[in-house]
Amino acid sequence: MDIQEQLNEVFEALQNKRALIHHITNYVTVNDCANVVLAMGASPIMADELSEVEEMVGICDALVLNIGTANERIIASMLKAGRAANAKGIPVVLDPVGVGATPFRRKSVAKLMDTISFSVIRGNMAEIKTIAGLEAKSAGVDSLDEESDGAKIALTLAKKLDCVIAITGKMDIVSDGVSTYSLDNGDVALTKLTGTGCMSSSLIGSFLGASNKALASAIAGILTMSIAGEIANKSQGMGTFHTSLIDAISQMDVQRMINSAKIDFIK
């Protein structure tokens, strides 16, 4: 099955099932993440209370874990939710925001990865290189790394972790350890709006919850954000762009994506 057929399949799955997506995510972007999930046709739950996360994830179709504003309590909830999701066969997405910035973040992500099996890990180049044990350059949660070796890193790490690795940046790379794709859509305005990476992870979770197809869901989620960024109105400033971005996501369909996508099969 070629990638266009796979994209059509995950879109159709989301149209046929209003997937319920449980988030334990960061409070900077939580509202935007909820809104893009709704705009895409799925349904969000944002719940991080330790005493209820097992029950909450048990009624959902996918789990998205985002460490952007994590603390010890939230990491404990993530571990509990992730174990419950794995036990029930519910796919899990990890967004390791700023993993290389502090020892707490590195240790927390290492513990999550030791405990939970992930379907998709999405991050910028510095975050993925940190997870891969490579030297990375970052400024807080922003990557300063070159992306020329992204395909090799994604492919190698995907094989090692047996999951889909998605690297987002100027050029996006997605690999499941067998097939690797580059995605060349997007707009510089997306870098001037907080949370577009977090929203991309939520979009991936939306497709994944409906289809349980990790590679196509990662590609569809990233392309939705990138193409919406190209479509959204930038002429009146970032506030207008923010609203217009949600509008463009809500109007995304598979034909618009396929017609607009700049996607290449690397290996």
Rank of each mutant, 00 (worst) to 15 (best):
M1L: 14
D2L: 03
L7C: 06
E9W: 07
F11I: 12
E12S: 11
R18L: 01
I24N: 07
T25K: 07
Y27S: 10
V28R: 08
V28N: 11
N31W: 12
A34Q: 11
V37S: 01
A39W: 07
P44Y: 05
P44V: 00
S51W: 13
V53F: 13
D61P: 03
D61T: 08
I67Y: 15
A70S: 01
N71G: 06
I74N: 01
I75L: 07
L79N: 00
K80I: 14
A87G: 05
V92I: 01
G98P: 05
G100C: 05
R105C: 11
K107S: 10
A110S: 13
L112A: 13
M113N: 05
T115K: 10
V120Q: 12
A126Y: 00
T130R: 13
T130G: 10
I131S: 04
I131P: 04
G133F: 06
G133I: 04
S138Q: 15
G140W: 00
D142R: 05
L144S: 10
D145Q: 10
E146N: 01
E146G: 12
E147G: 14
T156K: 14
L157H: 07
A158L: 12
K159C: 09
L161W: 14
I165P: 12
I167S: 04
G169R: 07
M171S: 08
I173Y: 06
V174A: 08
V174L: 01
S179P: 06
T180M: 04
Y181N: 04
L183P: 04
V188N: 04
T194S: 13
T194L: 11
C198N: 02
C198A: 12
M199R: 02
M199L: 15
S200D: 07
I204T: 03
I204W: 08
F207E: 06
S211E: 15
S211N: 15
K213E: 08
A214V: 02
I219N: 08
A220N: 09
L223Q: 03
L223R: 04
M225S: 13
S226D: 15
I227T: 00
A228D: 11
G229A: 01
G229F: 03
A232P: 00
K234S: 15
G239H: 12
F241E: 07
A248M: 03
Q251G: 06
Q255E: 15
M257R: 08
I258T: 13
N259F: 09
N259L: 13
S260D: 09
S260E: 10
A261F: 02
K262H: 06
I263C: 07
I263Q: 13
F265A: 07
F265D: 02
